[in-house]
Amino acid sequence: MVVTDAASFPARPDSWAPPLTPVLEAAPSVPTVLWSIVAMGLVAASAALGAAEPAVVVRALPALAAPAIGAVVLTAPALLALHQFLGLDAAPERLVLALSRAVVAGGRIALGLVPVMLFFAATSTLWPVALAAAVAIPGLAMACVALLGLRDAETEALIMPPRFALLLVAWAGLSLAIAVRIAVSMADLVLAGVPS
């Protein structure tokens, strides 16, 4: 979590005022982020095992990580650009950090859901529902963590500026719409060939 209060700034011996450059906590490493993306594919593949068709499992592995990751990748540049355009306070690095932490949190939740999905794949015929849950739950958790992290990143103001609140709402809405759009395409891809 990004430290947001004045204690996160290194003390200057000659002044009570914080330095201009805030201290950032360590960002997740690239392998950690990549593992998180793989985990999102794994949870989808676990749910797809219920279809008992190897082709569905193989297609689900990469395809169902796409909605959450695609939404973040496609909307992050727009978020950064608008954030700077609106003259808001947080450094762009903080925003990127918040987004990368959200991806890691989503991946961790996806990995935790693997046993649950395997359980349902083995004991029920609910694999399409499980597939949807495997995409939706980590995605929603990612969105929550990202929104909290982005809000924390805006440290300078005691009250969140209305512009930033508007930006967050717009970004969340756009991300959701893009994620749903990608999910529909990916669902078509994954379920292709499954008798209907």
Binding site: A105, G106, L111, G112, P115, A141
Partner: peptide, 16 residues
């Protein structure tokens, strides 16, 4: 406990 504990822990960790 055997099936859902990893997911539950991941949820709590995500909440900080």
């Amino acid at each position: 406990l055997l099936v859902a504990l990893p997911a539950v822990r991941a949820l709590y960790l995500a909440a900080g």
